[in-house]
Simulated assay, not measured.
Amino acid sequence: MSSNAARGADLTPVLRPAPLQAGDMVRLVSPGSPPHRDDVLQTQRTLQTWGLEVTLGDNVLNKFGYLAGTDTERLNDLNHALRDPSVRAIMATRGGKGSYRIAEQLDFAAARADPKFLVGFSDITVLHMSLWKHSRVVGLHGALYVDETTGDIPRLRSESLRAALMSEGPTVIASRQDEPTSQLTTTGTARGPLLGGNLDMIATGAGWALPDLRGAIVFIEAVDLYLGQVDRQLTMLRNAGHFDGIAGIAVGQFTKFNTSKGITITALLRDHLSRFDVPILGGLPLGHGDRPETVPLGGMAVLDAQAGALVVE
């Protein structure tokens, strides 16, 4: 497989927020499902040890059924953070469900006028996609979520996010051989903006929040879906042309999947992804699995399948 250069149709400049420094303010918001209060406070304490000031959105601990407050409450917290010049990064307390209900109502003009990192993954993917589509602002696919078994924030997750949030250098994500999706790795290199995230949200955003992926390295990960759901999502995205002209595919963690009458998630992914004839790098520790790392979304990336590395500027 040969290299593919980025050739997206939109030439609007990409905006990468400035790295945070000690004393900068981070705002915690809950765009999706309600978080646990103790987890929010632990995230706040961890960020404060980095020298950052941390404030909470007015509705961050609200609960409205399976949502962290009404749509208006969740949207207000997010837009207030986008408009507040003292806020230098916005961090989602968790994913879950609900971000897709407000993704088209973000203040995109404010996001472009004052670029700041949005940090989150899973359900937050739809917000990343919408912000990229309308504002071309780089976000961070990552989190400081507390491990349910230990009650602590894993050290690698903390260090990876801190580096992505507060350093100037590129982000290097190495493939892990113990990740099942490493079996999908092919050959070749690709260059383009890294776009995507949670596959369920990519499919949910198709036709309204999903940006043009031509020339992009598409990143996908998923958790706790039926194989048939993944099959339907990839079939729709492929047949609708959403993956036409992509430069490469970065495959993260596909966790909590069961074999279905001999079909594995890896075999299902290979069946779909091999049809695009682009370099594929699997085994990336990005998603809902063990020791996930943080990666910028929207930044220019180089995928090197032979070297087993994804490098994002």
Score class of each variant (00 low, 15 high):
3 S>P: 00
4 N>L: 01
11 L>I: 05
13 P>W: 12
13 P>A: 15
13 P>T: 08
13 P>Y: 12
14 V>G: 08
19 P>K: 08
23 G>Q: 06
26 V>R: 13
27 R>M: 15
29 V>P: 00
36 H>F: 14
37 R>P: 00
38 D>R: 12
42 Q>G: 04
48 Q>Y: 08
48 Q>V: 03
50 W>D: 03
51 G>S: 14
51 G>P: 12
54 V>E: 05
55 T>C: 10
56 L>M: 13
60 V>E: 02
63 K>M: 12
67 L>D: 03
70 T>F: 12
72 T>C: 04
72 T>W: 06
73 E>L: 13
76 N>E: 09
81 A>C: 09
86 S>L: 13
87 V>N: 03
90 I>R: 09
94 R>V: 03
96 G>R: 05
100 Y>R: 10
102 I>S: 02
102 I>K: 01
106 L>R: 04
106 L>Y: 00
113 A>I: 13
113 A>G: 00
116 K>R: 12
117 F>D: 00
120 G>S: 05
121 F>L: 03
123 D>N: 12
123 D>Y: 02
129 M>W: 06
130 S>G: 11
131 L>A: 05
132 W>H: 07
136 R>K: 14
138 V>P: 03
140 L>F: 10
143 A>N: 14
144 L>F: 07
145 Y>D: 11
146 V>Y: 01
146 V>E: 01
149 T>S: 13
152 D>I: 14
153 I>M: 12
155 R>F: 08
155 R>W: 05
158 S>M: 04
162 R>K: 15
167 S>A: 11
171 T>V: 15
172 V>A: 09
174 A>W: 04
176 R>H: 08
177 Q>I: 13
181 T>K: 06
182 S>C: 11
184 L>Q: 01
187 T>L: 04
187 T>Q: 07
194 L>T: 06
194 L>W: 09
197 G>C: 08
197 G>P: 04
200 D>P: 00
204 T>N: 10
205 G>E: 09
206 A>N: 04
207 G>N: 10
208 W>D: 02
213 L>C: 08
213 L>D: 02
216 A>I: 12
219 F>V: 07
219 F>Q: 07
219 F>D: 01
219 F>N: 07
222 A>Q: 10
223 V>C: 11
227 L>G: 11
230 V>N: 05
230 V>G: 02
230 V>I: 15
230 V>Y: 10
242 H>Q: 08
246 I>C: 09
259 T>Q: 15
261 K>Q: 07
264 T>M: 09
265 I>S: 03
268 L>F: 02
269 L>G: 04
269 L>E: 09
271 D>L: 12
278 V>M: 06
278 V>W: 09
281 L>V: 00
283 G>K: 03
284 L>Q: 02
285 P>G: 04
287 G>R: 02
289 G>N: 01
291 R>Y: 08
294 T>Q: 05
296 P>R: 14
297 L>P: 01
297 L>K: 01
298 G>T: 02
298 G>F: 14
309 A>K: 13
309 A>Y: 09
311 V>M: 14
313 E>N: 15
